[in-house]
Amino acid sequence: MDPARPPRVPTRRRGEALTGAIGLATLEELARTSFEELSFDKIAVAAGTGKAALYRRWSTPAELVMAALTDPATGFGDVPAPPGTGTLRGDLIALLSRLAGALEEPRGRALRPLIAHRHRHPELFEHVYRLVIRPHLEVLLTVLRQAAERGEAAPERVTERIAALGPRLVTLEAWEHDHVDPHEVEALVDEILLPLLRP
């Protein structure tokens, strides 16, 4: 090593590493406060970068929130395939347990203020519903249709209202207790969803 050469200074995060740090900081800040209090200044400080890095990529905090929520690294990313456990009970428990886990992470906690205050920002919530909530609801509907084909569910009970019931109950449990016990998920499936869907 050349003694005349100064020690190498670590380079700043770039590319996916920087985008991931910004996305995570956005979701954590949103979960901690509210969308009204969200700003590029706060996010930049939390992400350990400058505001210019944010302005180069996004025009508004709303754009940044949607990017973070749909990013595979920090948000909900690609919609998972149906669990394929072979039983309706197994599929429902797998999907709702996955949701319960996500609601304890920054991506899930960030959804709370967006859902609770959707009337304040209807356009933003519409994007959240279309890009995050609706695709996962479609997976649940697929699971119910498959169960109806196997004879485990009554075809007339395969509706969006019943498909949405499980996620709503799990979300409410998370709001009330800040945690969803695995036994609670099983109880929701066994005591509420299966009796509703049974032929």
Rank of each mutant, 00 (worst) to 15 (best):
L38K: 08
L144Q: 02
K51V: 13
V139I: 04
T70A: 04
S59V: 02
L92W: 08
L144I: 04
A81K: 10
L30A: 13
R120W: 02
M66S: 06
A67I: 01
E138R: 12
L137H: 03
L64R: 07
A47K: 03
F40V: 13
L30R: 03
A102Y: 00
E138I: 04
L95Y: 00
R150T: 14
R134F: 13
A52M: 09
L103Y: 09
L88N: 13
E105P: 08
A110S: 12
R56K: 14
T85V: 07
G75C: 07
E37V: 07
G90R: 10
L30V: 11
L18I: 10
L92R: 11
A52Y: 13
V132A: 04
L114R: 03
R56E: 12
E149F: 13
P113E: 01
L88A: 15
F40N: 14
W58Y: 15
I93L: 10
R32W: 00
A21C: 08
H119S: 15
T49D: 04
I133S: 10
A147S: 12
A81G: 10
E104K: 12
A62M: 04
H127N: 06
G84R: 10
V45D: 04
R150W: 13
G50T: 13
T60W: 00
A94F: 03
L141E: 03
Y55P: 06
F125V: 05
R109I: 09
L24W: 03
L88K: 06
A68V: 02
S59F: 02
G77F: 03
E126S: 15
L54P: 12
R32H: 12
A81C: 05
Y129I: 01
L64Y: 06
K42S: 14
E37H: 13
T85R: 09
A102G: 07
R112F: 15
D78P: 08
H119I: 09
L88C: 12
S34Y: 08
T142S: 14
A46T: 04
R134S: 13
L38G: 14
L54N: 09
A100E: 04
W58I: 03
H136P: 02
